[in-house]
Design a protein around this nucleic acid. Structure first.
Length: 260
DNA sequence: GACTACTTCTTGTTTCGAGA
DNA sequence: TCTCGAAACAAGAAGTAGTC
């Protein structure tokens, strides 16, 4: 991929906890003033495929990879400080994060995020707990889409588009359709994300089953992760906040300007 | 056999009702 | 009023049953 000088590549990765399930990946390029989607969201399975896709996308350019998955998990049991703080701030919006610990993640083959960090370190990437405005280089951050949707789209609670016991397919379709419309609206956001206007437009969600909906969810979350990276570089701590610590794991998310 | 759909599991917090 | 326990809810993934 040919990236213009001084442009940053913003990569969103909705990372599955194990390689048994596909992960969504979206690639945008631009500057803190705005970016364009250059690679429509896709789904990849293995760590190798993900790393190769990232290497192909970034070339020699600086890049920020925003990953929706636990990256630093030092605790054997319980939950991380980041999850406790995030839950306290966003629980009223039903955006409580899933507890992550090594014992739980061992069921899925270990902390996949740590493995990816190690693989991408060879390409000059370093883990950071937060993005500062206009920072330049190659960074990896951990993000969580639900709080981001609440803040970016000013929602009273999260969009309930994920499969849950008792949640009807019709509700999932309705909420996912709403989510996709909001994502397309980022073309007029601050910063704007262009090129996503036609995404999923030809898909009739009412005709899709749970698996097809899940695939679109993964792609949509990947796109939002990429936008969080762009948003973070645009606003930094003025409109974003990092929960937790670098040592114990941190989750970076857009935050209300008056409270960030 | 491959795919889809549904249920269950795990961890931790919040809410609500019952009892002291 | 306070404490305790049960239920509900969030998340991602595994396991199982059903269908083609």
């Amino acid at each position: 991929m040919n990236v213009k000088p001084f442009q940053t590549v913003y990569i969103g990765l909705d990372l599955a906890w194990s390689e048994r399930n596909p992960s969504g990946l979206a690639v945008c390029t631009g500057t803190p003033a705005g970016a364009r989607l250059v690679q429509p969201p896709s789904r990849l399975v293995t760590n190798e495929a993900i790393v190769q896709a990232i290497r192909t996308a970034i070339g020699d350019a600086p890049a920020i990879v925003a990953i929706d998955a636990p990256l630093i998990v030092p605790n054997e049991t319980g939950r991380r400080e980041a999850e406790a703080e995030l839950a306290a701030a966003f629980r009223r919006y039903d955006a409580g994060p899933h507890p992550a610990n090594r014992r739980l993640l061992r069921r899925y083959g270990g902390v996949r995020g740590e493995a990816l960090l190690a693989m991408l370190a060879a390409d000059g990437f370093g883990y950071v707990p937060a993005i500062e405005a206009s920072m330049n280089g190659r960074f990896i951050i951990e993000v969580f889409p639900h709080p981001a949707t609440v803040v970016l789209f000013r929602l009273p609670h999260i969009l309930r588009y994920k499969a849950r016991p008792g949640r009807e397919l019709a509700e999932r379709r309705r909420e996912l359709g709403r989510y996709l419309r909001l994502l397309r609206g980022l073309s007029s956001g601050d910063p704007p994300l262009l090129g996503s206007d036609d995404l999923w437009k030809g898909r009739d969600l009412d005709q899709l089953g749970p698996s097809a909906l899940k695939a679109i969810e993964d792609e949509a979350d990947a796109l939002l992760c990429a936008y969080i990276a762009l948003y973070g570089q645009r606003w930094g701590t003025a409109r974003c906040r990092s929960f937790g610590t670098a040592e114990g794991g941190a989750i970076f998310t857009p935050y209300w300007a008056e409270q960030a």
